[in-house]
């Protein structure tokens, strides 16, 4: 039994080492733009993979209320997302389905499913600092932005890489630019600062509390602070995350929206 364990560990080390060596050698030969894109792709895949299932809590603090929710989410690719409220009791069962470019909400209180109109897209998603539009346009940075490495080296005692992302002209993005910082080791995201079209800071994402999650260390806490209301925030804390489960497309249907 013990031998099997050691064998497994050895195997893991070898595999991981091989991957690491391959990556390092690749880094030496590839073009700078290519490298930036590859790192971004890894960051994008960090929580989503091909498909994902996770449980997280979301805490929202605004000038008017503080609320905490426990949510369960499934994703597939970047087009499909289903989020269901587990707690509080008052809103339990409320679910949001994002499929292609539409958002549907299932409301257990009225047992109705509602499709959000374009007018509601800039509205808050479940009272948080995310808009419904964030959910629809949840973009892969690699697809929508042209990245440039704007800093690489030691910052706050950690080796970091900073990217400046300029939206591609045709990308459906409302931001002027995004500045993303990742740890040089493992490419774990640290911050993402979103600038509006006038290049003023609009909101800041901070990633922290790196813990093993779905098989590797990942930041488990993500906090968003809107620039115009610095005392407010929305914080997402991952409890559980499983990646690449092979969820069926049919799962992201209006019928499963209602299922409890």
């Amino acid at each position: 039994m013990r031998a099997v364990g050691i064998l497994l560990i050895a195997l893991l080390i070898t595999t991981f080492g091989a991957v690491e060596i391959a990556r390092l050698s690749a880094a030496q030969t590839e073009a700078p733009g290519e490298r930036a894109r590859r790192i971004l792709r890894e960051v994008d895949d960090l929580w989503r993979g091909d498909s994902s299932h996770g449980i997280f809590t979301m805490q929202v603090k605004t000038a008017h209320y503080t609320r905490s929710m426990r949510l369960e989410a499934w994703t597939k690719g970047k087009e499909k997302t289903l989020v269901r409220i587990l707690a509080p009791l008052k809103e339990k069962g409320t679910a949001t389905l994002k499929s292609e470019n539409s958002i549907y909400s299932y409301l257990p209180r009225t047992d109705r499913t509602v499709r959000l109109t374009s007018g509601m897209m800039m509205g808050s998603w479940m009272g948080s600092h995310f808009t419904n539009d964030d959910l629809v346009k949840e973009s892969r940075m690699e697809d929508d932005y042209t990245p440039r490495i704007s800093f690489e080296g030691e910052r706050n005692g950690r080796k970091t890489i900073e990217f400046t992302l300029i939206p591609k002209p045709e990308a459906p993005v409302v931001w002027g630019k995004v500045v993303a910082t990742v740890l040089a080791e493992g490419y774990l995201p640290l911050t993402q600062i979103y600038y509006d079209e006038d290049m003023a800071v609009a909101r800041t994402f901070t990633f922290s509390d790196i813990k093993p999650l779905a098989g590797r260390p990942r930041p488990t806490v993500m906090r968003v602070v809107p620039a115009d209301k610095p005392e407010e925030y929305t914080e997402i804390v991952y409890e559980r995350l499983e990646l690449n489960l092979g969820i069926d497309d049919a799962f992201f249907s209006l019928a499963s929206l209602k299922r409890h």
């Binding site: 008017h64 609320r67 008052k90 809103e91 909400s105 409301l107 209180r109 009225t110 109705r112 009272g127």
Partner: peptide
């Protein structure tokens, strides 16, 4: 008609 909005406590206001 179903109404969906955001209540003052941040919760999802909805009713028939």
């Amino acid at each position: 008609v179903v109404i969906v909005s955001q209540a003052t406590d941040g919760s999802m206001a909805n009713d028939l």
